[in-house]
Design a protein around this nucleic acid. Sequence first.
DNA 1: AGCACGCCGACT
DNA 2: GTCGGCGTGCTC
Length: 654
Amino acid sequence: MTLRLTARVLIDSPLPQLDRLFDYSIPQPLIETAVPGVRVKVPLRSAGRVADGYIVDVTAGGDYAGTLSELDSVVSPISVLTPEVWALARRAADRAAGTASDIVRLAVPTRQVRVEKAFVHATTVSPVAPHPIDFYGPGVLESAVASGRRLAIDAVPYLTEVATGVWVGTWAVTLAALAAVTLASGRSAILAVPDYRDQEQLVAALTAILAADRVVRLDARQSNSDRYRGFLRALGDTPLAIVGNRSVVYAPAKNLGLIAVWDDGDPLHSEPLSPYVHTRDAALIRQELQGGALLFMAHSRSTDVERLVEVGYLASVSPKPLVLPKVIPTAQQVADDSVAARARIPSTAWREAKLALQSGPVLVQVARPGYAPRLACIDCGFTSRCIRCEGPLHQNTARAVPSCSWCGALAVGWTCSNCTGERMRQIGNGAARTADELGRAFPGIKVIVADGERPILTVGAEPALVIATIGAEPIAAGGYRAVLLLDGERMLARESLRVAEDCVRWWSNAIALAARGAPTVLVGVGGALASTMATWRQSDYARSELSDRRRLRFPPAVRVATLTGAVEVVAAAVETTKAEPLDVLGPVDVDASTVRTIVRFDYAHGAEIAATLRAEVIQAATNRRKTIAIAGKRGAARPTLKVRFDDIEPFRDV
DNA sequence: AGCACGCCGACT
DNA sequence: GTCGGCGTGCTC
């Protein structure tokens, strides 16, 4: 018997030059267990050196001319890398000029032997009753999911109380009901949300509709064992609703009927690890490969989704009839009441808040946490900076010693770097200062502060002033009786390509926490943004924003790739890439030995440019010769070329 | 990344 | 005559 089977193995390594399949012969004792998807250990380059990897295919022949090494061992009999996820990882990595194993590392949690041994797949599962979906016309979303359509859905902007008595955004109920429809048809649903607050709402909505054995969480915050247990459940045959943050798009669902992404404009959907694949892009690829329905749902439309709508890839769906929150834009005006004036609240907002506080909680959204986000010298007015690192100073509470926003050092013995002043003045209002001032303006009312450091998920229905920073707004039982968006002007003053888009998203998400019919006062914002909010037409705004970006050739109207590395490595990569039509921006210096160049091109050329750049990355990683000459005698630095696609960070200052 | 292969200076 | 230095290249 000389029937030798060959295992094609993906090596678990971030090295671009190892990002291809290696063939190994399967020794007789491993014939049974060496199947596609299992983790294996393989010899690499020399005996004794073993690498981890995954079998992605088992074939009779093989195209490798040399003699094959044998698999060292099969780590676990479970096929953790499914064919669907492997295909997705390959495609996503190729599109981003990255390595597939970097994606697989996000997709497959580390093995937990104890969890694996203790794990048994459920033999019986709870039935799923489809849940009716309101607001979008009878059967509209249900049939879209059943027929595997791709949609951009405007969410319903208020809260709903689910059967368990928990208040959640209506969006969560809609998504949960769509998951139930999918599960009832015998397929799984993947639901990706940006943060844990969203995840809590969605899980609450899901568990109110589905039995607990039909819902799985899969996210980075879980302990390794919890994550691996959830992963093994997702790997089973039972149709499940799989909920998590960005990496959940890589969950091992075999029979996938739905991928839904909530609030794709939230930057938390952008993967910070190489190859930096956005949830939205991973979802798009996966749906293309594996079928099923694809939904992007949000209160405000991202320019990225708007582009997909305009090219006809996604169909736009809104609630029917339209649900319009009551939004009142007001210019920044001095209030007639002096206490309110000190609390920098316009009279309209003051009146609405006062009235609303008679019946329930009022949300006040502010831009910055802490007390004073900035300090300045009393004598010369210069911004106060850290005496150690020149970082800006801020103050967390009214009486706190100012500290550095960069290095954290307390500003003890501070003197002004411009004059010789020794005293500082507080500039601007953080959440804590706003809370102080509003507390004085509304005596007797309970004041609650919610920010990144003191997260509060929910508040009750009783009157209270809830001061929250962006994205940290608690959910109020029954919804807020009024919402004040205080720092609009300051939020818009940030320098970023997406400021306006972000502001619309921040405001929309806060407005959606109001009770039905409760007023929102948007302070200090006028023009197109104010009317967008007042008319609740975020998709119109996204359309005009996208058309501006198209005119300027900014993302997402075009794609960009950021190339970072040594001057000549970057220059060589740009030169090769010029075979495709593109504009070159830069290079600019990042530090003494590193430059950054941005290339800008149309979507149609993305695949070729990614392939070219990937070859350049491998070239740079393999050619050690050049840089050692550059680095001199020490010769430690490697000539790496870093490539990142569709990063808008460099467009911050436009 | 690692690790072996390969072509030039000081050593029993 | 070799031992070993690190530059160079490859990994089934």
